[in-house]
Amino acid sequence: MSLREEILDVSKELLLKHGFSKISMRKIARKADVTATSIYLHFENKDDLLLALVEESIAKLNKVLRNALDEAASPIEQLKSLTDAYVDFALKNPQEYEIIYMVRPEEMPKYPKEKFQQVREIYELLAGIIKRGKERNLFDVEDPLVSAYTLWAQIHGVVSVVLGKRLDTRVPIERFLDLATDHIIQGFIIQKTPA
């Protein structure tokens, strides 16, 4: 592991444990057993370090989603694949997931406008699938981009219940995830009335 990766790992741990306002370059250096000066060789300041964590986590999620996408599959199958990949990423990488979505925005440095493109890629990918589904008369939606954000908000809610340990203990996690994601996707599909 490179020094940069080690610094990012330590920073991630401290960020999630104490919050952005309570970590410092000195604390990161102490925990990583390096000098603060060596951190500044890789990162301009604490904001730069946090933005690197966010960017790295988003890149990992983007890669997972793109790898899950079968271009030949129907839009319904693609939505299911992306939803499953998203949930799987969140459960297997809870720290990265939390950094992307759950770090309190008031503590975060302002995310540079040009970096938002990486975040938008996820929603644009999803909106494209929803648009194709609408064109094929599979999805009942008005605005594919709004629908993409709505779908992601719903999936985020499902994942947050599991990661936050808020799920009723009588409900098996796997069953909850399967049924919840299926219900969300079904909400977009045009229901055919039997003849």
Score class of each variant (00 low, 15 high):
residue 61 L to H: 06
residue 114 E to L: 11
residue 115 K to Q: 12
residue 78 Q to T: 01
residue 90 A to E: 03
residue 91 L to I: 15
residue 80 K to C: 14
residue 46 K to T: 03
residue 55 E to Q: 13
residue 51 L to H: 01
residue 116 F to A: 10
residue 78 Q to N: 12
residue 37 T to W: 05
residue 41 L to K: 12
residue 69 L to Y: 08
residue 78 Q to D: 05
residue 53 L to I: 02
residue 88 D to K: 04
residue 46 K to P: 07
residue 85 A to Q: 05
residue 108 M to E: 01
residue 91 L to N: 03
residue 80 K to N: 13
residue 98 E to G: 10
residue 63 K to P: 02
residue 98 E to L: 05
residue 39 I to R: 09
residue 63 K to Q: 07
residue 75 P to C: 09
residue 43 F to W: 06
residue 67 N to G: 11
residue 51 L to C: 06
residue 60 K to E: 15
residue 107 E to F: 06
residue 72 A to T: 11
residue 72 A to C: 12
residue 59 A to W: 05
residue 101 Y to W: 05
residue 59 A to P: 10
residue 67 N to F: 13
residue 85 A to F: 08
residue 104 R to L: 14
residue 51 L to A: 03
residue 110 K to Q: 10
residue 39 I to G: 00
residue 49 L to A: 10
residue 60 K to W: 04
residue 84 D to R: 15
residue 95 Q to R: 12
residue 74 S to F: 08
residue 38 S to K: 08
residue 100 I to K: 03
residue 63 K to N: 08
residue 113 K to F: 05
residue 79 L to R: 06
residue 102 M to P: 02
residue 106 E to W: 12
residue 111 Y to F: 12
residue 60 K to C: 14
residue 42 H to G: 11
residue 56 E to D: 15
residue 92 K to H: 08
residue 83 T to N: 05
residue 83 T to W: 00
residue 97 Y to C: 03
residue 84 D to E: 15
residue 45 N to E: 05
residue 61 L to I: 07
residue 47 D to P: 04
residue 51 L to K: 07
residue 44 E to Y: 12
residue 49 L to N: 00
residue 96 E to F: 07
residue 66 R to N: 12
residue 72 A to K: 14
residue 51 L to M: 04
residue 95 Q to E: 15
residue 115 K to H: 10
residue 68 A to H: 12
residue 77 E to V: 14
residue 93 N to G: 07
residue 116 F to Y: 01
residue 55 E to C: 09
residue 116 F to V: 14
residue 104 R to G: 02
residue 80 K to E: 11
residue 89 F to Q: 13
residue 100 I to H: 07
residue 40 Y to F: 04
residue 43 F to V: 05
residue 87 V to W: 06
residue 74 S to A: 13
residue 89 F to H: 03
residue 94 P to Q: 06
residue 85 A to I: 02
residue 115 K to F: 04
residue 47 D to V: 03
residue 37 T to Y: 06
residue 82 L to W: 04
residue 73 A to I: 09
residue 95 Q to Y: 08
residue 60 K to V: 01
residue 100 I to E: 00
residue 97 Y to K: 01
residue 91 L to K: 01
residue 59 A to L: 14
residue 45 N to Y: 04
residue 104 R to A: 09
residue 85 A to Y: 07
residue 107 E to R: 01
residue 75 P to I: 04
residue 97 Y to M: 05
residue 59 A to I: 13
residue 80 K to F: 10
residue 46 K to V: 01
residue 35 T to Y: 08
residue 103 V to P: 02
residue 101 Y to F: 13
residue 68 A to W: 10
residue 83 T to Y: 03
